[in-house]
């Protein structure tokens, strides 16, 4: 299997002086479900946002599916971004419009400016949006305003939005951190399905080891902006866990 994501000696120093990433060398193979572990502030979010250039990295290389992300701009950057779906902890949906409109906005990277400004979507895009909502079990909610949906439903709308991009890669930044355990598992199930059935590569940051073991094919742990562990979820024992999260940490189980 080829590497779909590669970073070489990736650094990020914020304007505030915080050195968030200190030489990350990450390789993710096509079809992997890669879990990012690490404390808040360890650099997980920064790393994910560097991968699709929502944040500019300070130095180093990033390659996604053979394309150089660091130097990309304009149309090239948009073309790279639209192959990468992204899912966020706070869902990041437009709250006061319908689920369908939110899902359709996933197609923006493909439609021309004129079409998008007149809100005239192609029929096949609207059909695809319905199809994707159906896939996450929310077809009946298409015309509901997002703010009237529950947290779990909102995150599923966000997944449907990402699916509109026909992505090769899905970046998920703590997708279940604001959900209750049962809902969290449902959302992870959808991500797992995309990984197995649609062969999408998923990079997902998490805090729960149980979910990491259940869905991940590989685990990468960050600490202070460096990779401190890389391996299969099975290798992640209590000693390794304490290395990542500190001596005082206790594993919290969710099933």
């Amino acid at each position: 299997m080829k590497n779909i994501i590669e970073t070489r000696d990736l650094h990020k120093v914020y304007a505030s002086g915080i050195h968030a990433l200190k030489g990350i060398n990450l390789e993710v193979k096509e079809g992997e479900f890669c879990i990012l572990l690490g404390l808040s502030g360890s650099g997980k979010s920064t790393l994910l946002r560097c991968l699709n250039k929502l944040i500019d990295s300070t130095s180093g290389e990033i390659n996604i599916d053979g394309e150089n992300v660091v130097t990309a701009s304009g149309y090239t950057l948009r073309r790279i971004r639209r192959q990468i779906g992204m899912i966020f902890q706070q869902f990041n949906l437009i709250k006061n419009v319908t689920a369908l409109t939110n899902v359709l906005s996933g197609k923006l990277g493909y439609v021309s400016l004129g079409h998008s400004l007149t809100f005239s979507y192609h029929k096949e895009d609207i059909d695809a949006a319905h199809e994707n909502l159906k896939r996450v079990g929310l077809l009946n909610f298409a015309n509901k305003k997002v703010k009237n949906l529950s947290g779990g439903q909102q995150q599923r709308v966000a997944i449907a939005r990402a699916l509109m991009q026909d992505p090769k890669v899905i970046l998920a930044d703590e997708p279940v951190a604001s959900l209750d355990p049962a809902t969290a598992d449902t959302v992870m199930k959808y991500l797992g399905e995309l990984n197995r059935k649609d062969n999408m590569t998923v990079i997902c940051s998490l805090h729960f080891l149980s979910l990491a073991r259940k869905y991940g094919t590989r685990v990468v742990a960050l600490k202070d902006g460096k990779i401190v562990f890389e391996g299969s979820p099975k290798e992640l024992d209590e000693r390794k866990f304490k290395e990542i999260y500190g001596e005082d940490a206790e594993e919290v189980e969710i099933r």
């Binding site: 929502l54 073309r79 639209r82 992204m86 966020f88 437009i94 990277g109």
Partner: peptide
């Protein structure tokens, strides 16, 4: 809320 801005950017808009 900056979230949606980030999300729409990420779609390639």
């Amino acid at each position: 809320d900056d979230g949606p801005v980030e999300a729409i950017k990420a779609t390639g808009a």
